[in-house]
Design a protein around this nucleic acid. Structure first.
Length: 304
DNA sequence: ACGCCTACCTGCTTGC
DNA sequence: TGCAAGCAGGTAGGCG
């Protein structure tokens, strides 16, 4: 999906363009986009008439704070996009949910692969939006899952761009883990918002091998990684995100950050630092790009 | 905690 | 040209 910088770009655009707008009605064209346990019909009935007070982001989820205190969450996953379409714009065959705004515009949730999810939550208790193993749910009689607010909204790790995300705090978290750096950076419960692109970019910038175990970093490694994570995310935002096939902002425009990436999808091309060929390996079933010269292999334990 | 697997979906690229 | 395989920025849930 769009990662933190892409979601931040979309949320900022939407704050500018739809804060204050009223949702007159909605049409759900792909039912499963509406997050369980919300039946799509109830979602449509409950969102109608709502006014958007503010739009922001937590991790990779866009949050629409409504005037009445409720929150609509939009997790874009792999190919989701939120696009504001002026009145009269041609329909989009990939629009899975269409919100008609009272002023005639449409807010369209477009999602080619249909992985994204939209939820509507009561006010209060909203801290973060469910993240993998951290989020808790329980099975109910019919075998489906029911989420409780405060459990669903409690699974994310720290926001890497927040003031409270210090190198010291990052060091503490890293020291307690023996997992590979690449895997950890992708773990939303460890740090929120980093995805495959920015994980690879941050590791290249910090000159750290993706397979390196977190608890083997020395304090200087940690500081470099901390700085690198924040830098690549901030630069991604400054460039309005990285577009490969699907990511677009709220106007439907591509970002520029794909032009500035050092390793992601640059397999066999020269490293911008040392000229060595960029390599691609698979870590945790995700493609991983790095420079084998700049990002030295972790020391392998040698059998006697 | 960790790693691995499957599932969810469609479209594009690559190789034969 | 046609067709199949492989690939894609994410995450939930199950198993060991």
């Amino acid at each position: 999906m769009p990662e933190l910088p892409e979601v931040e770009t979309v949320a900022r655009d939407l704050q500018r363009w739809v804060a204050g707008a009223t949702i007159a009605g909605a049409e759900v064209r792909w039912a499963r986009t509406i997050r369980h346990p919300q039946p799509p019909e109830r979602f449509v009935a409950e969102i109608a008439g709502a006014t958007i007070r503010r739009v922001d982001r937590r991790a990779k989820t866009v949050l629409f704070h409504l005037e009445d205190g409720r929150v609509m969450t939009v997790a874009l996953r792999m190919t989701g996009a939120l696009i504001v379409a002026p009145a009269g714009t041609a329909d989009d065959p990939y629009a899975r949910v269409v919100f008609d705004l009272a002023d005639g515009r449409q807010l369209r949730y477009r999602d080619v692969r249909k992985f994204g999810r939209i939820g509507l939550w009561p006010g209060g208790g909203l801290r973060s939006v469910g993240a993998g193993r951290g989020a808790r749910s329980r099975r109910v009689a019919d075998g489906t899952r029911r989420y409780r607010i405060g459990e669903v909204f409690s699974g994310h790790g720290p926001e890497p761009l927040s003031r409270s995300f210090t190198a010291e705090r990052f060091a503490e978290r890293l020291q307690r883990r023996s997992a590979k750096l690449k895997t950890l950076l992708l773990d939303q419960a460890f740090v929120a918002g980093v995805g495959n692109i920015y994980a690879d970019e941050a590791l290249w910038r910090a000159r750290l091998h993706p397979l390196r175990a977190a608890d083997t970093l020395d304090p200087r490694d940690v500081r470099r990684l901390h700085r690198a994570v924040r830098q690549v995310l901030r630069e991604g935002i400054a460039n309005r995100g990285a577009s490969f096939s699907d990511y677009v902002d709220a106007r439907g425009q591509q970002g520029d950050n794909q032009e500035r990436l050092a390793v992601y999808r640059r397999t066999d091309q020269p490293c911008y630092r040392c000229g060595h060929r960029i390599e691609r390996i698979v870590v945790g079933q995700r493609s991983t790009h790095f420079c084998p010269r700049c990002q030295r292999e972790p020391v392998a334990s040698v059998e006697p």
